[in-house]
Design a protein around this nucleic acid. Sequence first.
DNA 1: TGGAATGTTCGGCT
DNA 2: AAGCCGAACATTCC
Length: 256
Amino acid sequence: MPELPEAETIVRTLAPHVEGRRVLGLRLLSPRAARRLWPELSGRRIERLRRYGKRVVFELEGGALVAHLGMTGSLLWRGASGPYTRAVLLLEEGWVCFDDVRQFGALDWCETPPGDLGPDPLEMSEGEFVARLQSERASLKRLLLEQRFVRGIGNIYADEILFRARIHPDARAAAIGAVRARRLYRAMVAVLREAIECGGSSISNYVDAEGRRGGFQRHHRVYGRAGAPCPRCGRPIRKIRIAQRGTHFCPACQRR
DNA sequence: TGGAATGTTCGGCT
DNA sequence: AAGCCGAACATTCC
């Protein structure tokens, strides 16, 4: 569910409600929802809400509350408490529900903002991206999913990016050459920007902080379209498995 | 009913 | 010794 465009959309829709407000406390409704012991949050001001890769970061006075949304996590402004509400962040005015059906997500507390992942794909230059690719021998699909290589891309957008770049998902990173490496960079930026414009992709659970679904699933060219005609050449989209993830591509447009 | 699902992590193997 | 694979986590849906 939440890859970079979804996390970005959550931040944009939640930030106006929470930035500048003070925290009253955190109610944990599921023990799995918290990754460690917490300091007292009460009275701390939310200075800024931002995205770090796929994660949503509440920058508080004295530390950061990091939301890992896993596969099905959402952050809902003034959300109604339901069976999948795992935690509630209470503010002076209003609250944020952390809902997560599968419980692969969690909240984390960091004294210093997180900085352990690779560069953000929308902040990285084309030159930096091409240079980083050259030292990697893994497949491009695996590499795009690797958060220490670039932060924020998941299974949907990896497939959509590779289709747009017309590169086979199993191609080896270091072997694709400068022309295709630049095409891959431009496809990555274009797909992510368009997905943000559309408010992300809603496959099943994803909604923004106001509970609204995204629209980019209507623009998916390969993801979830196995057997359907390729929008570029009309031949059927194929689904294979790379790095233990379903991988959708057009065998005609994305040759080895 | 089995398998797959937007993700991450860990142990074991090569 | 890095890098890859499979399993595990929890739940729903087809």
